Amino acid sequence: MSVRARLVATTATVALAAGTATALLPAVANAAAPAPAKPAVTVSYGAVSARGPLLPGGRTESFTVTATNTTGKSAPFLGTFSATPQGVFALASADLSLSVVPVHAPATGFGTIAEEPGLIGQIHPKASKLWGSADFVLPAHASYTWKVTVGATKAWKASDNAVLVNVSNSAAPDDSAPFSTVDLKVGAARTGGRVVETLTGGGSVAPGRDALETLTVANRTGAAVPGPVGGEVSTSGLVQDGDQYGPGRVTVDLLEGGHWVALKGGQLPVLGNGLAKDAVVSYRLRLVSGPYQAPFASGTTPLYAFFSAAQYALDGPTTSRTITVYQH
């Protein structure tokens, strides 16, 4: 199995285990909880160098990562590395400078790729390639240690304020291994918030009876969001009543320059300059019900709104609202 496949399998196994534990909880509430199993290989972090927050294009931080074999026989280790931003933007590879150097470990290779919302990569034997199948082999009761250095480049988005780093063992995924991160602050400003969307309005339509809605987009990130920023509004084209579905198209118009204009492909006008710090932008929308062909008197359909900025997905600014559609 490839390393990336093992990583996906590990995530699925953890999710399944969490769901199973939740389902069984009421039945064992009065039973003594068994001691948690100890993973064969543990991963621990040393203290951060504590020079202060990362400064884009400047100050970096370093810490050690140690993999320890807790068993009396050799065990495999392959370090899966992840870096996740705290804020509205996904990370691009150019946003961080990263290095992993062996302190007490065999010759090491390291690399990452962008995978929203952050970066993922590997700490692997130098003779192997990134996403290769070779593992480190930890002797019984032995430890390997690496020094990890993280920096924010000048490409870092000012609206994000931290990066969370994790290293885990994908050579032998273990449900008992705790997930922990090294949290590194970036910049001195109070940023890291969200772009918040809200939909408000009448909430019901029928043929010949339109509904007015207002979409509000508020920049609560603590910094400007660079443009272009684009948005999209859409409906599903189906009406639902319980477990029944039927055609019931609802179209969306935008009030622009005092006139209602049909949205082509649901696309809102692009904000070329982006969103200034603390900016609030509102769109006046009209929902129009087309011919009602569903086999029931009324139903509901979702109204969706989604925003993105430049080539980066904005993490969070997606909203929806349920619209009631009547036959008459």
Rank of each mutant, 00 (worst) to 15 (best):
V165H: 01
V165A: 07
V165I: 15
N166F: 01
S168W: 01
S170L: 06
A172C: 05
A172H: 09
D174Q: 08
D175F: 10
S176P: 05
A177G: 11
P178N: 10
S180V: 09
T181K: 07
K185Y: 02
G187A: 08
A189E: 15
R190H: 14
T191S: 12
G192L: 03
G192T: 04
G192K: 03
V195Y: 11
V196N: 07
E197Y: 00
T198Y: 01
L199D: 02
L199C: 10
T200C: 04
G202W: 00
G202F: 00
A206L: 12
G208Q: 11
G208L: 11
A211W: 04
A211N: 09
A211G: 06
A211V: 08
L212N: 08
E213H: 07
E213G: 09
T214P: 05
T214L: 05
T214F: 01
N219I: 01
N219K: 05
R220M: 08
G222F: 07
G222C: 02
G222I: 00
A223H: 14
A223V: 01
A224I: 00
A224Y: 06
P226Q: 08
P226D: 10
G227A: 02
G227Q: 07
P228F: 00
P228R: 08
P228W: 00
V229S: 07
G230T: 13
G231H: 08
V233I: 14
S234Q: 10
S234K: 07
S236C: 09
Q240G: 04
Q240K: 13
D241S: 15
D241K: 10
G242W: 11
D243N: 14
Q244V: 00
G246L: 12
P247A: 13
P247D: 06
G248E: 06
R249G: 01
V250H: 04
V250W: 10
T251P: 02
T251D: 14
V252Y: 03
D253Y: 04
E256F: 03
E256M: 02
G257P: 12
G257V: 04
W260G: 02
V261Q: 15
V261G: 04
A262Q: 10
L263F: 06
K264D: 10
G265D: 09
Q267N: 07
L268H: 06
L268G: 07
P269Y: 04
V270S: 10
G272D: 14
G272K: 13
G274V: 02
G274Y: 05
A276G: 14
A276Y: 03
K277W: 03
K277R: 14
D278E: 14
V281S: 06
V281Q: 13
S282G: 04
S282M: 04
Y283N: 12
Y283D: 11
R284K: 15
L285H: 12
L285G: 11
R286T: 05
R286F: 01
R286M: 03
L287W: 02
L287K: 10
L287R: 08
S289N: 03
G290M: 07
P291H: 11
Y292G: 00
Y292N: 00
Y292V: 01
Y292M: 01
Q293G: 14
A294W: 15
A294N: 03
F296L: 00
F296I: 01
A297F: 15
A297S: 11
S298F: 15
G299H: 12
G299I: 09
T301L: 14
Y304N: 09
A305D: 08
